[in-house]
Every structure is written in structure tokens, then in C-alpha cells.
């Protein structure tokens, strides 16, 4: 039953991932066709028109209201026609204590990659994108176990396990929107499908949570940012 549940969850996740991609792709494909028929083709300029810098509101909210979490994340992107270079930098730490086990971690991370905007002709440059990221994290974590295992002759387990300055890297498939709210203020969200995690811990502690990636006990992880941006124009939009 346990195996089935895990399998079901994994299947659902993959289904969701594919469903999102299909939804966005089909919707955007239809949109792109409409755009093509509506307007004359202009020469494409790959010179950036602005830099958008923002932060993740969810991280700020969690830091304020979730005792076990502290973190922040800064996001930036710059446009090259319909293509965007995107960079995220952040940090988080988590602390859990259930009496018998105390877990804590902290670390910094960055992500770098590109987005493709599928709303080409929007006059406000609102954005509906698909993208790819490479993420890398440097983190430390520790687990203190103080418990007695009744199965094994009531052997007391008093051990401290840790990983120091470990690295983790992964890839992300991203999708989301960016909407101009007022003048240079933009908002948007990014949904992340994280996969391909590799870590280099060398102790007996298997990473539980990697800053920037999240929990490691599944092959695929979800991430979500709700962001506010300031867009600094560097060139007038044509």
C-alpha cells in the first residue's frame, strides 16, 4: 500500500508537470498564431530594453510567520527580444526540533537560465514564459538524534550527524507570468519543476533539505515564487 501511494504520488506529480506544460504550450501556441496573423513582421532587435529586479514575497512571508524557516530570494532578468536571461540568488535556513531529533540547515544558492516569452505583442510587455534553470547551492546541515529504539534492545541512539559546506546542483523547468502593475512595478509568479539533483555530501547524513531546491526525498520537487519586481528601462521599447 505504501509503495502504491508513493507511486501514485509520483505519477500525479509527473502528470501535473506534463499537464502544465501541455496547457501552457497549447495556449501559447494558439496565442502566437493569432499574433502572427494580426501584425506585420518587424525586424527583431536583441538589444535589451530593461532590467527587472525583484524579490520573492513568499520567502519574506515565511520568514515572518513560519518559525522553522528563514530566507530570502532576489530575482532578476533582462530581455533579449522574446528571450530573457534570468538569475536568482537566495538563502534559506530551516530548524526543526521534535524532542528526539534536532535538524537545522542553512545555505546560499543561485539559479541561472533563460525564459522564453510567448506574449510577444503585448504593449506592456507582460510576460507568459517557459524557461530552464541550472541551480547550485552551498549548504551545511546537522542532525542531532537523542532517542531509544525499542526494537533493538532499547539501544540509546545519541549521535550527531552533519554535512558541512556541501554542494548541490539541479535543473528546473519553469513557467509563470510577469504583469506590469504600475509604472516600473511588476508582479508575477514562477512555478518550478526541479529535477536532476546531485549532492556531494561525504558523511552519513543524507541531505533532507537543500536551500534553493527543497526536500530531497523525491526525485522531482516543486517550487513556487510570488514575486514583486522593479523594472529599470535601459532603452526605449520599439
Amino acid at each position: 500500500m505504501q509503495v502504491f501511494k508513493v507511486y501514485q504520488q509520483e505519477t500525479l506529480k509527473y502528470f501535473h508537470s506534463i499537464a502544465i506544460l501541455l496547457f501552457v504550450t497549447v495556449g501559447v501556441s494558439a496565442q502566437t498564431k493569432t499574433d502572427t496573423t494580426e501584425t506585420k513582421k518587424k525586424p527583431t532587435s536583441f538589444v535589451p530594453t530593461g532590467v527587472r529586479v525583484g524579490t520573492d514575497l513568499i520567502a519574506i512571508g515565511m520568514t515572518r510567520y513560519v518559525d522553522s524557516y528563514k530566507g530570502w530570494e532576489v530575482n532578476a532578468d533582462v530581455d533579449f527580444s522574446r528571450y530573457y536571461l534570468a538569475v536568482d540568488v537566495g538563502s534559506w535556513s530551516r530548524d526543526y526540533d521534535n524532542g528526539a531529533e534536532i535538524y537545522s540547515n542553512n545555505g546560499n544558492y543561485f539559479r541561472i537560465g533563460g525564459d522564453v516569452n510567448f506574449l510577444l505583442k503585448d504593449p506592456d510587455r507582460n510576460m507568459f514564459f517557459l524557461g530552464l534553470r541550472y541551480g547550485r547551492s552551498k549548504f551545511s546541515e546537522s542532525l542531532q538524534v537523542n532517542k531509544i529504539d525499542s526494537m533493538w534492545n532499547n539501544n540509546p541512539v545519541n549521535e550527531r550527524y552533519s554535512n558541512s559546506n556541501s554542494n548541490g546542483s539541479w535543473f528546473e523547468l519553469t513557467t509563470g507570468i510577469r504583469v506590469k502593475i504600475w509604472k516600473v512595478i511588476w508582479m508575477g509568479y514562477t512555478a518550478r519543476l526541479k529535477f536532476g539533483l546531485t549532492t556531494n555530501e561525504d558523511g552519513n547524513l543524507i541531505p533532507h533539505d537543500i536551500p534553493g531546491y527543497g526536500r530531497t526525498d523525491k526525485n522531482v520537487a516543486w517550487g513556487f515564487n510570488y514575486q514583486i519586481f522593479v523594472r529599470i528601462p535601459v532603452r526605449r521599447q520599439q
Binding site: Q9, L12, I20, T37, E38, D122, N126, T175, A191
Partner: peptide
């Protein structure tokens, strides 16, 4: 030609809700 932004706004609204709900479901499965 249809110059209205309505189709785009509609698509974005749908996408917003769709993704939001999926995130909720995914977070439960975690």
C-alpha cells in the same frame, strides 16, 4: 484584426488559476 487584449487576459487568468491549484495539490502531496 482583433485588437482586443481580452483573449490574452483570459488565457493568463486561466493559467494563473490552473497553476495556483496545481501548486496547492502538489504541496499537499509533499
Amino acid at each position: 484584426v482583433n485588437l482586443s487584449l481580452q483573449p490574452r487576459v483570459s488565457t493568463m487568468k486561466k493559467a494563473t488559476w490552473f497553476i495556483f491549484l496545481l501548486i496547492i495539490i502538489a504541496s499537499c502531496l509533499n
